[in-house]
Nucleic acid binder design. Structure first.
Lengths: 234, 234
DNA sequence: TGACGCTCGATTGGATCCATTGTGCGCCAT
DNA sequence: ATGGCGCACAATGGATCCAATCGAGCGTCA
């Protein structure tokens, strides 16, 4: 089946494309943590052979989204509470730095956009919308500085915790939300004033507070899928 | 040529093994930044076909050690001064955290080992020995805490700057060395007292000082290899 | 009846072959 | 002589085929 749909200019190998699509699917929640991923499925679903499929799995493994066991198979990575807290600790150190580097570069228009996102987030009651807006709010703060590696690192951290952010947001509603919304506005305010120190402080405690709240809900990490052995992945 | 030397128990796919060997070669300076890496060479040199070779290149790309251009080839990543400074800024935030997490877990014996390393480093006058000891000193501080992701992230950052640490150490001798040695002993001292705050502070300024010194030697980053196009890599 | 071992099936890993693409050299025209 | 065009070669990307390996289920024996 050598289809090779030329509906779009190929810019990068198929493995990269498959990895991107699979990444999106994992982040969207299509494959929850613990799900088995077979190479042939991936290949078939994305119109490629098993070679780029395997390449994609290896790439996602190096991003931490997938765990590949030799001669056995690939599974969507699960995190336990400790690992998730570790990620939040890393974010607590890195994102304030990234934000600081962006403070002098953000335009008033961009800050208005952030403000709008913060308000839209307050009005949203749908979980998926909230997740999307929250992610967009934070990552939009980081777009201006030419810090490729820092940006990529932070993005990977966000991606790894995505399923648990979803679970957390679903289970635990509206109690800490007010604090989060308040902090978002404090960040916008600090950005407006160009106060990098304050922006750093607020963002650090924002992330820290979320980590502490996560720690109070360990049930989120109780293995949802019974870590299937081999014959499954529907 | 299906050799498949069974001289060692295969624990993980060949792609992973090839990646590890190639990584070591790059870190050892065998392939300086800008060097073209052909899949067939890698395959031949490591007793595998081009499939695992390509897999290895993709893995190293995701670690930032190699840049793969679609349909064109792979090159060892070069850094400019700004990118190198970015890495040091990230390290300045992450390594103090990692050190802090290890402070309560390091045994007196391990700290003695660190002290020995620091002294050995002072006596060494060979560049390669210094590089090895310095790397070992710092990374040995991080072995106890069960923080996989943080540890991996830091390791990747060290790897990416390795060629430039080498160049820096070669070009710029013994002026900042005294400060570095002093700081190493201050770290050991803080570890002995279990003073996490002080250890963090010293390590942060240690990394920061190195970054500032790097910035005073931009000539290190003047493209050494003339970024060869396609036919080379000997 | 339960535990151990063996065989078979399903799935991954790797090698080879073919398609695709980018580069460089040479030729032709100005 | 020089600049632009085109063809040929070399290296990458992908598909298919074969080998290797793990797991599950069955059968046997204690």
């Amino acid at each position: 089946m050598t289809v090779m749909t030329t509906d779009l200019i190929m810019h990068g190998s198929a493995g990269t494309r498959v990895a991107a699509e699979l990444r999106d699917a994992i982040l969207a929640g299509t494959y929850p943590p613990g799900t088995r991923i077979r190479q042939e499925d991936v290949a078939g679903r994305h119109g490629a052979s098993r070679v780029p499929a395997r390449e994609a799995l290896r790439l996602l493994e190096s991003e931490g989204l997938v765990k590949v066991v030799a001669n056995t198979g690939a599974w969507v990575t699960s995190l336990n509470l400790a690992e998730c807290e570790e990620i939040y600790q890393i974010r607590e150190r890195l994102e304030p730095l990234l934000l600081r580097l962006n403070v002098p570069l953000l335009t008033p228009e961009q800050i208005d956009g952030l403000d709008a996102l913060a308000h839209e987030m307050e009005r949203s009651d749908d979980v998926e919308t909230f997740l999307r807006l929250d992610r967009e709010f934070h990552l939009s703060c980081y777009t201006e500085a030419a810090t490729t590696m820092l940006h990529d690192t932070v993005l990977r951290l966000w991606n790894r915790t995505q399923p648990y952010r979803r679970a957390y947001t679903t289970v635990f509603r509206s109690a800490g939300d007010r604090s989060a919304h308040h902090e978002h506005h404090l960040i916008v305010s600090a950005l407006r004033r160009g106060d990098a120190d304050e922006a750093e402080r607020v963002l650090a405690s924002h992330i820290r507070r979320t980590r502490l709240e996560l720690a109070r809900h360990p049930e989120i990490f109780d293995a949802p899928a019974p870590q299937p052995t081999r014959a499954d992945a529907r």
